[in-house]
Design a protein around this nucleic acid. Structure first.
Lengths: 137, 137
DNA sequence: CTTGACCTTCCAGTCACTGGAAGGATTAGC
DNA sequence: GCTAATCCTTCCAGTGACTGGAAGGTCAAG
């Protein structure tokens, strides 16, 4: 099938699919007219990539997962380890965002938000906070 | 002062400070020897940038905040609006990561993680999940 | 006078695409 | 058969926010 159909079936934009070929994640055949010709296993691979990317795996991690996938001898523990590390990264990211959020929330809460020019948010950013000290280090 | 000291005082790497000059966020003087010469208000500006970036504001948002900061007539509501939008973005990002996390957690939980080759994580990525269906759409 | 720390510019790379230009192939309609 | 629309190709450049490194100038200490 042509790239348009592969795109539809995998959910990935054609541009992205070509990019994945550039970086050797898929290697479709070529038809006589020079068009890429995707097999159903190519589409399978593309869907795998789509799903894994959606789960937050980087391209390199996807490459690893794909190689684990095609390695009939790999232990499931290997895959679990990759996934668990990713989970830990996601947790860390969430924690970081939450502390970000509470800092910003604090600033928003103490800003009266009217048409007067003084603003605790800018004051804090500028490093001139009042007695409460800075939200940021 | 030279860039090294400005870097120490602002907490930003010298490389980043030069980059900020490239994109017109700061405009230090130059000494006779060609070295950048930072005033204390330059450092002030750099610290502002450092803090705002740490709070998750993009460079363009920082540019806006800086212009609001130097506009003695702006209403605090303007700043609050920017901050609140950022808060909403952070919330959305957290929610996204949490759904990511639970999807991945589900997969990790049902992978036995031993040396047998079958692995629910890869099966799901490949689109061959069992009766439970896919974690991913 | 040399060593080392600091400064300069410029170029390239990161990550994962995304946009667009210029042109060839195919298909649908008239 | 012609034309227009759609699809495909390649290649180049840009995104955001830096970061690394090369090549070279400047300065302070010993």
């Amino acid at each position: 099938m042509n790239i348009g159909e592969a795109s539809e079936r995998s959910g990935l934009p054609a541009k992205t699919i070509r990019y994945y070929e550039d970086i050797s994640l898929v290697a479709p055949d070529r038809a006589e007219n020079g068009y890429r010709d995707y097999s159903s296993s190519d589409v399978h691979r593309l869907r795998f990539l789509h799903r894994a990317r959606n789960l937050g795996f980087s391209i390199d991690e996807c490459r690893l997962l794909l190689s684990l996938y095609s390695d009939r001898n790999r232990a499931s523990a290997d895959v679990k380890a990759v996934a668990e590390q990713k989970l830990a990264e996601i947790d860390a990211k969430i924690a970081e965002l939450q502390s970000l959020k509470s800092a910003l929330q604090l600033l928003v809460d103490c800003c009266h938000g009217d048409d007067r020019p003084d603003c605790p948010i800018l004051d804090d950013l500028a490093g001139q906070g009042g007695r409460k000290g800075h939200v940021l280090a």
